[in-house]
Design a binder for these strands. Structure first.
Lengths: 112, 112
DNA sequence: CAGCATCCGAACCGATACTG
DNA sequence: CAGTATCGGTTCGGATGCTG
């Protein structure tokens, strides 16, 4: 029986690529990291990540929500209040991110 | 003593983002994966990943080489032969990729 | 065989201004 | 306060053709 190796016609066939698509947006790791210790309001996140434009931050949050990584809770108040929090799926991601962070500090940032 | 949280003005300040920059190119996880069982010639990689245009594959390989993930060995023959192989740093990445793959199959691809 | 050069189109990021 | 709308600029991927 001849073994035929899998051929990749589309990058999404790779599970690793699929995972990176979920957590690999420009500011997404930072957002997830910021939510580890509990929920945050939009304004708080914006203060923590001033480098991200409001529109960009907003869209990354929406994508994370659609991928089931975070929840968005809007309180019908004036002025409005919106809180973001990690889901269980999001929390499970943080363990892998911890590994990535350690690897990065040992293998990428060590050149500094 | 008041605790001030780190503010992110640039995404690259995040070690996780830095790691994803290294391994997060569109075809890079597949390339790294293909090299786990030993070196490969350019043409072999191209056959395994027909979805990637030659130019794109070539550049991703060059970036991986510059980041110290793979080595490139050119043999002065006619016709030319070039072999790519994982470095130790690259091999250390595969363990994390294994975790990512498992997480992905459990949390992303499970919707299929 | 293993690429590089060129050109094109899509996707994404970002600053500014406006809204409920 | 928490966004959305609009417009630009940049980066990236992809198809094609050429080279040592």
């Amino acid at each position: 029986m001849k073994k035929v190796e899998k051929r990749y016609w589309a990058a999404d066939d790779c599970p690793i690529t699929a995972a990176i698509d979920v957590m690999g947006g420009k500011w997404k790791p930072i957002i997830i990291w910021a939510l580890i210790n509990g929920n945050r309001r939009f304004g708080e996140l914006h203060k923590l990540i001033p480098g991200a434009a409001v529109k960009v931050l907003s869209r990354q949050l929406k994508e994370l929500e659609m991928d089931g990584i975070i929840t968005r809770t809007a309180y019908p108040e004036v002025p409005p209040r919106v809180e973001y929090d990690l889901t269980d799926k999001g929390k499970s991601l943080t363990e892998i991110m911890q590994s990535l962070s350690l690897w990065s500090q040992a293998n990428v940032l060590e050149r500094i």
